[in-house]
């Protein structure tokens, strides 16, 4: 597992207060919303802030989040391509 994917899982668990969920329980392809981790709309906003704060990525259109935040895989790929930090 890449360092970035591990880092993302750690950040998601800590910043979104996912109590009782361990890194090993989040598969790279698991859906983050809906039936996966069950994140909600406020969590999506937190992830947008996280992209900006930690990776220097500003999403001009929040609707982009729908595809970027599909899974850890998709998040990591987008960050690798667009990060400025």
């Amino acid at each position: 597992m890449s360092n970035l994917k591990i880092e993302l899982k750690e950040k998601i668990i800590e910043q979104l207060n996912l109590e009782d969920i361990a890194i090993e329980e989040i598969a790279d392809t698991d859906p983050l919303f809906g039936e996966g981790l069950g994140l909600d709309s406020i969590d999506a906003l937190e992830l947008i802030v996280m992209l900006d704060k930690d990776y220097g990525i500003k999403l001009a259109d929040p609707k982009q989040g729908r595809t970027i935040f599909e899974s850890i895989d998709s998040m990591a790929a987008y960050i690798e391509e667009n990060r400025s930090r």
Partner: peptide, 9 residues
């Protein structure tokens, strides 16, 4: 300047 939506609500 990074307000947290989860705190703000």
């Amino acid at each position: 300047f990074y307000p947290s939506p989860a705190v703000f609500v």
